[in-house]
Simulated scan of single mutants.
Amino acid sequence: MLGRLAVDVAIYRDRVQVTERKSGIFIDQRADHPFSSDTQLVADATRFEHALSHALRQILKTGAYMLYEPRAVVGPTDPALTPPERALVRRVLQDTGFRRIEFEDE
C-alpha cells in the first residue's frame, strides 16, 4: 500500500537524522564529507544535500511511498539555524523534492 512520504529531519554537526513519521523508520546518516563549519551548522549545501539524500534513499527502499506533496518537518537545532542557514535547508529540501517544509521552532 502506498503512503505519503512525511519525515522529521534533525540536523546536527555533519550528521542528519531522518524519521519517517508513519512507520517510525529512523535513519542516522553521518556525512561522508563535512557540511558544518566552526561557525555554521549547515555551511555547505551540496554536502548537506548528499547526506540528506543518502538518508532518504534508505527510507524509500523500505516501502512504497507517493511522492505527491511530500512533507518534511525540521526539528529545532542546537545551535539554532541562522536565517541564511534556514533558507539553505529549505532550498535543499525543495531541491530534493519536498513541497511542504515546516520548521518546528517557527
Rank of each mutant, 00 (worst) to 15 (best):
M1Y: 10
M1K: 08
L2T: 07
L2E: 12
G3T: 13
L5N: 03
L5Q: 07
V7P: 12
D8H: 14
V9W: 02
V9D: 08
I11R: 05
I11F: 01
I11L: 06
I11T: 06
V16I: 14
V16K: 06
Q17S: 14
T19N: 11
E20W: 10
E20G: 09
E20F: 11
K22H: 12
S23K: 08
S23G: 14
G24M: 08
I25G: 05
I27E: 02
I27R: 06
D28Q: 04
Q29H: 07
Q29V: 06
R30F: 02
R30G: 08
A31D: 00
A31E: 00
H33M: 12
H33A: 14
P34R: 05
P34N: 04
S36A: 13
D38S: 10
Q40C: 13
Q40F: 04
L41Q: 01
V42Q: 02
V42I: 05
A43I: 01
A43K: 01
A45N: 02
R47A: 05
F48L: 02
F48C: 02
E49T: 06
H50C: 10
L52M: 07
H54C: 14
L56R: 11
R57G: 07
R57Q: 15
R57M: 14
R57L: 14
R57V: 07
I59K: 09
I59N: 09
L60Q: 15
K61T: 14
G63L: 12
G63C: 07
Y65W: 14
Y65K: 04
M66Y: 13
P70L: 00
A72G: 12
A72V: 08
V73N: 15
V73T: 15
V73Q: 15
G75Y: 13
T77M: 04
T77E: 01
T77R: 06
T77S: 15
T77N: 03
D78H: 11
D78R: 09
D78L: 09
P79V: 06
P79A: 10
T82Q: 09
P83T: 03
P83A: 03
P83K: 03
P84K: 03
R86C: 00
R86H: 06
L88I: 01
V89K: 04
R90E: 15
R90G: 01
V92I: 04
V92L: 05
L93G: 04
Q94V: 03
G97K: 06
R99T: 10
R100A: 04
I101C: 06
I101H: 04
E102D: 15
F103S: 07
E104N: 11
E104L: 12
D105G: 11
D105P: 06
E106V: 03
E106I: 01
E106N: 10
